[in-house]
Amino acid sequence: MALFYMLLVFMVIAAIIAVETKDLLSSVICVGAIGFGGSLMFLFLRAPDIAITQIVVEVLGLIILIRATISRDLTFITGDREFFGTVVSVVILFVILLAGVRIFATLPEFGAPVFARLPGTASQAYISRGLADTGAPNLVTSIYLDYRAYDTLGEATVLFAAVIGATAILRSKSRKALEGSDA
């Protein structure tokens, strides 16, 4: 479990570098390091399906982000917002951090979940009856594609809506044709 904490600290350090570095491209690569570190963490947390999905999504996301940052002249935009606003937001964030640490102290200990062990909860029912109900030995599959299939359908809808939005924003041909006919 020591490796687990080392990975977590690695992710935090990569996040700090990603936030504070001046060059946008190295910032994007640091975020990729967080993503791949997170995928390793999911393997440690016994979630192989999530790890595979995270790697695939991470590769695609990195391609999208590099497309946005490469070959831009002004990738070196630096500086924060005005000083007073920065100080106020840092103070507020620090207060939120302290409150969050207090709240997390009241949660059950890491590695001892409550929901999966109580009889009668949804998680317990999925573990005990998932294979008999759906025929899928992988319980994540049985939840994802059978018990909560409508959730997956909604997810696909959201994904297509996002793709339609992105293409509508990025297209330039019809807009130029429109401007030409106006003039």
Binding site: L45, A116, V140
Partner: peptide
């Protein structure tokens, strides 16, 4: 381990890719 959060996070990861594409565009 609990399979329920894993199934829901799977949804969340894929949706985060869609929102990333929209933000970057």
């Amino acid at each position: 381990v609990d399979p329920l959060p894993q199934a829901l996070v799977l949804t969340s990861i894929v949706i985060s890719l869609g929102s990333l594409a929209l933000l970057i565009s």
